[in-house]
Nucleic acid binder design. Structure first.
Lengths: 196, 196
DNA sequence: ATATTTCACATACTTAGCGTATGTCAACTC
DNA sequence: GAGTTGACATACGCTAAGTATGTGAAATAT
């Protein structure tokens, strides 16, 4: 029973997949809603019914990607030797993830422009929450200086984000990436109470 | 003589002013070119002749703002006691500048989304160049660790930028700003060879 | 089991705004 | 002062977002 809500969820998922592809490929504004819907055998009617408007669709896509990234970052962080290494690992993982064109285009470029500041997103930017928690743990354990955890998390993410943009846009990403990671870890070490 | 190029420069300037206002107010995509031109008694013909397309207009606006910011940052940095203090001062100046809605909307949100990575802009992001030079000076003097100067500059700017976005979006910017600045300075100190 | 309602989605239409092709008149050239 | 250039205006087409309305299958009621 309830074949309708089942079908609806299925269509929503299909639309998000199609939108994700189109947004990544052409960018938000150049991606047409007719193309997205017809790619999965639906019409704009379905889109407006499910997501309200084009922004709503982008929000749904961003939310999905964001969740995936947070999950990934958490896994990477959990595998590190200690929590401090975990923070560094999370950061570099973030940089590497952000090298994917899809992430850049949708989450780092179009997302903020269309939806506004990431920290205000309904998805709450789960990625940010992850690092914030790690930072808090490290502060309470006396590893890090006693600074505002949200501030630290935001700046770390911002640094990593720009590092990724820079690396991706460079003609030789492979050569530049190590420099970016090195710089990131140097900056992060500024948060340590007792410098290495 | 040459009344024509004079008039043209004047019109260009007027259009940039109008565009700057419209972009800051409504955002890039919502700002209509008809509105911009009619606001200064011209038509879209003038706009397309001078800037090629809408993107070209945004590029011109961004270029102007960027130059202003670089000039400001340099002045602030030059007034500091030493070069290290100058770097910190530049960073906080950047954060404070980025609190202006105009800067945020045009340079930090719409700019990257429409024009792509800032470091590839024709204006070369003069602001970035300024910090890069400061960093190089500090490295050669042995104050900072020997890391890639461009990487350091990019990450510092990125951190500052996100700090500004965060502060501006917060319900109580005044209270949050000091935390942002504190975190920024902590991060920056990670670049120091001999920690304070 | 049939009638009724609901609602997920389709269809048709309106409108806004970018880009382009063409026109025009003042400013420079010869 | 006739010809040419070029900065800008005018007019048009086209794409694409949003909206209002239609439709048929699934859920519910009788």
């Amino acid at each position: 029973m309830n074949k309708r809500i089942e079908k609806m969820a299925e269509n929503r998922a299909k639309l998000i997949v199609a939108a994700r592809e189109a947004f990544a490929d052409k960018g938000y504004s150049a991606a047409s809603m007719d193309d997205i819907t017809s790619a999965v055998g639906l019409t704009r009617g379905a889109l407006y019914h499910n997501f309200g408007d084009k922004r709503g669709l982008l929000a749904a896509v961003v939310d999905q990607i964001d969740s995936e990234m947070a999950l990934y970052a958490q896994n990477v962080g959990a595998q590190a030797a200690d929590e401090w290494e975990g923070l560094l690992a999370e950061g570099t993982a973030y940089i590497e993830k952000a090298l994917e064109p899809e992430i850049q285009r949708i989450v780092l470029l179009d997302g903020p422009a269309v939806l506004g500041d990431p920290s205000q997103w309904p998805s709450q930017n789960s990625c940010l929450q992850t690092t914030k928690q790690t930072v808090e743990g490290l502060i309470s354990r006396g590893t890090l200086k006693n600074i505002d955890s949200e501030a630290a998390a935001r700046l770390l993410n911002g640094a990593a984000l720009n590092a990724a943009l820079w690396v991706a846009a460079s003609p030789t990403p492979k050569d530049v990436l190590p420099h970016a990671i090195e710089a990131f870890q140097a900056l992060a070490s500024g948060l340590l109470k007792k410098p290495v």
